[in-house]
Design a protein around this nucleic acid. Sequence first.
DNA 1: GAGTGGTCTAGACCACCTC
DNA 2: AGGTGGTCTAGACCACTCT
Lengths: 260, 260
Amino acid sequence: MLRFLYRFQGKLEIGADVPLTVELDRSSPVPLYYQLAQAIEASIRDGELAPGDRFENELALAKRLSLSRPTTRRAIQELVDKGLLVRKRGVGTQVVQNPVHRRVELTSLFDDLARAGQEPTTTLLEYQVGPPEEEVARELNLALDREVVSIRRLRCANGEPLAVMTNYLPVEIAPDAEELESNGLYQSLRARGVHIRLARQRIGARGASRAEAQLLDEKPNAPLLTMARTAFDDSGAAVEFGNHCYRASRYYFDTTLVDR
Amino acid sequence: MLRFLYRFQGKLEIGADVPLTVELDRSSPVPLYYQLAQAIEASIRDGELAPGDRFENELALAKRLSLSRPTTRRAIQELVDKGLLVRKRGVGTQVVQNPVHRRVELTSLFDDLARAGQEPTTTLLEYQVGPPEEEVARELNLALDREVVSIRRLRCANGEPLAVMTNYLPVEIAPDAEELESNGLYQSLRARGVHIRLARQRIGARGASRAEAQLLDEKPNAPLLTMARTAFDDSGAAVEFGNHCYRASRYYFDTTLVDR
DNA sequence: GAGTGGTCTAGACCACCTC
DNA sequence: AGGTGGTCTAGACCACTCT
């Protein structure tokens, strides 16, 4: 199949300088707004667009790239939501200072570690099937006579213990014990056709119990970062509830908040 | 307004019943998509739309309300981003189970407490002007010869100590000492025309120092929930950097993650 | 007044899921 | 095959900010 590549070289216009080069592939299945957002993000991360720079305005950019305004707008909005750009009505769009970060996405710890080249490993501490505790039944929206699988795992990165994770899943969708030793939980669920779409997290802290301290190579009562998470699939049903404890000395959460 | 109810004898398939009544005020300055989003959200919270219910499809809703599809779509998308609805291509839109929560918005602790009727009070522990430490200069993107105001406050709720907060601001925009005793920091900044638009937060945990323990009525080494936050205004400039420590026994963060 | 982003319309075609 | 959401177009009018 033919593939059309459009290459635009922007003239330098507004105030500073807009060296934004964008290649859009209109035959690709990747949405145009996404292609454009990626290109702009790359320009920012590469330093072609410096923090504080004024950004080419919507109409001009749309015209230059032969895109409609809504499509261009959506690409820009994507980056505003990511915290890389800021817009002010009547003024313009600017690159945020210090745009070095990535926000917390809906990813698993396992994937995060693997992507960072941290060599994640998992030890299965417990795997049992039975009726849910009251809290678990409430979080998963299950009747008390349904069966759930309880999983307790120790996650290490580069051989160092990092977190103790307890998870509860309806028995119908729970992965096998062996699978959990080699893959992340979400990875296993994905392979079974369960797509996590949304999660609610409560992040807190507490002191380590004696057992937790031993597992994590910390002293009893050492500060732990805790996360309780309920995850929902693409039909809105709760599919997983978990209590995780991280060594505070080796882990933190990074989030970005945007006012819209 | 007319309301059509469809009754099926067999299995209830399509959305069963959509009692969604919406009144739109086209002369209001409030955007239509926002009015609609609010109405839907109210229906969910009131239980008119139950968890798991299928939602009326975009096209039908748009036609019924005499709105364009993009406007209708945007309202729905708003609620998807909030974690109240889930969409699946080719299938439809459904209400998420257990939609009881509010997500972390870009708000200040002071405002949150006040809204929850928790009677916040602030004690100013320190207020001084001088050159920034290296970390602060880096976070605020300031030269080392610029002056910053360092603020240290104890925040209580209902008379109980809750958090120790250390903040750094460029001297030009810093509120007075007196102002900080009666208002929140963000409230004071807003009054000075500074609009926080974006914040990056790192959430972790550690043990309390002796001084912190004393201020917070905890034992030394008690677990504290920590947040380091850099805030940016609507021109993308860093305006505030803060280190906050919360009593883990009395505070946690609640977040929602959505896969888009 | 000029320029910017914010909202809105009325269509179109496509990809995906279920029947 | 029919219905759903996902993407895209080519305009329009308005509100806000800066000069």
